[in-house]
Design a protein around this nucleic acid. Structure first.
Length: 475
DNA sequence: AGCACA
């Protein structure tokens, strides 16, 4: 009102709680703005990426004096205001409040509203959603529902920072195909912030989970695949889910060692224990994960796949009745990776220094979002977090840089001197292959022969074959 | 490097 009609000159501009900032770096984030301005007072609102070049912004202080403090500080300072090394020019805005700053969905909070486009509600299980979002931090609760917008989920994180890292990384991306039913072609995530801060989950069910409260009652009607046998799609009784998988190996042309299994199954999370045994003339193995979710994903991803190309060592997976295996810590038929102090086995236990098998785990994680969707970024994350749990371990907290758009470098290149066990060479493609192949029926190991740019370093084609093991390609 | 609902 008072400013209308007349051009404003900077020396006549009247102070305002709202400051206009220009010459900001491209796509300057709200965090960067707040970082710059908060020493002078409480910021109640911002508007970023304003102007044709998206290099201007507005910041509104709670109090006029705070804005005056900032302007006068930089007016007399020898150090200009800077963001990312760029000098930022600050002046009073000719408005007195930031209006209609954001649509509600853009106000950061700890709860995300995720719309999963292109799928039916039944196509994406809550376990898959949990797995995908757990890469960024502990997921407290999930509630799914169907609205006009489609299949949606509310996902509660500890804080807005975690939620926004997940949002920034996943908004507009797709859930990897191998986590979805075959008939799903595309499925993109639209993510905004919910106004909720704490979801009220009443039951553990196929549509809602509270991971902070494992003792929450299971909804008897909505329950599916939890704790008790449920009916599968074919109407037959479905075995109860378990964190332990029973794998039977069909057409076992080559010996399947503990190490091979470990490499294969580590692609989906921390493998705690493995036991191999003979039954009915065939070879079976039990693979223990920390949780049912990881086991479920591994089961779905690996079922029917072959460890070695050419249809050899085909895996058939079911849930074991066991929940905690009692195995010898180190024998040729069993392994307990939770024993922390063995130098041979400690790699599972978040070592301080990267160790070869851990790097491999991360190589696996790197390929979790293959192709043009997540590609290069995940690899870099692998470097960053080498030595930690793989990305898809739901307990892992370090996934925030996972999906940055950065040039591709694979962890294998980061530790060229790392001793890579030969068995790792043989088995590594197994874990990565279902990810690299859109077709779930591809032999697991086939990625070895692929020449997909940017991915070849992931599979160590030059590694030696293990003693007493055939080459895993050709044959 | 100079003001945002288009």
């Amino acid at each position: 009102m008072s400013t209308s009609g007349q051009p404003q000159f900077r020396y006549t501009q009247t102070p305002s709680k709202v400051l206009h900032l220009r010459n900001l770096p491209w796509e300057c984030t709200e965090e960067e703005l707040v970082e710059l301005c908060k020493p002078f007072g409480k910021i109640v609102n911002t508007k970023c990426n304003v102007g044709a070049n998206h290099n201007q912004a507005f910041v509104e202080f709670a109090d006029l004096n705070q804005a005056i403090q900032m302007v006068s500080y930089y007016a007399s300072s020898s150090e200009p205001a800077q963001v990312r090394g760029k000098t930022v020019y600050i002046q009073y805005s000719n408005r007195h409040e930031i209006v209609n700053n954001k649509s509600p969905g853009d106000v950061p909070g700890n709860v995300l509203l995720v719309t999963i486009e292109g799928v039916e509600a039944g196509d994406v299980s809550i376990d898959v959603i949990h797995l995908v979002f757990s890469a960024f931090g502990f997921v407290h609760k999930i509630a799914t529902f169907e609205k006009a917008a489609g299949f949606q989920a509310l996902i509660q994180f500890t804080d807005a920072e975690t939620a926004s890292s997940a949002r920034n990384a996943l908004d507009g991306r797709s859930i990897p195909r191998y986590l979805l039913p075959e008939h799903v072609n595309s499925c993109s995530l639209r993510i905004s912030y919910s106004a909720h801060t704490d979801l009220n989950i009443k039951f553990q069910s196929h549509r809602s989970r509270d991971y902070t409260n494992p003792y929450l009652p299971v909804n008897p009607t909505a329950m599916e695949g939890l704790l008790q046998p449920a009916l599968g799609p074919d109407g037959k009784k479905k075995e109860p889910e378990s964190n332990v998988l029973l794998a039977s190996v069909e057409n076992m042309q080559y010996v399947v060692t503990v190490d091979v299994l470990h490499t294969v199954f580590s692609a989906f999370g921390t493998v705690q224990k493995i036991a191999i045994f003979e039954k009915n003339g065939g070879t079976q193995a039990l693979i223990q994960y920390p949780d049912v979710t990881t086991a479920a994903v591994a089961k779905d991803a690996l079922e029917g796949h072959c460890i070695y190309d050419g249809g050899y060592c085909k895996l058939h997976l079911s849930y074991s009745r066991h929940t905690d295996l009692n195995v010898k810590a180190f024998s040729d038929k069993s392994r307990d990776y939770t024993i922390p102090d063995s130098s041979l086995l400690a790699v599972q236990q978040v070592p301080v220094l990267p160790a070869a098998p851990t790097v491999w785990q991360n190589s696996q994680a790197a390929s979790m979002y293959p192709g043009n969707e997540y590609a290069a970024a995940t690899a870099v994350h692998s470097q960053v977090s080498a030595g930690q749990a793989p990305s898809w371990n739901p307990t892992m907290q370090a996934g925030r840089s996972t999906y940055m758009q950065v040039p591709s470098t694979f962890p294998g290149q980061t530790y060229p001197a790392s001793p890579v066990p030969a068995y790792g060479t043989a088995a590594t493609p197994v874990g990565s292959s279902p990810l690299l192949h859109s077709s779930p029926v591809s032999p697991v190991v086939a990625s070895v022969t692929m020449t997909q740019p940017g991915f070849h370093t992931n599979v160590r084609p030059s590694g030696a074959s293990p003693p007493n093991q055939p080459p895993y390609y050709g044959q």
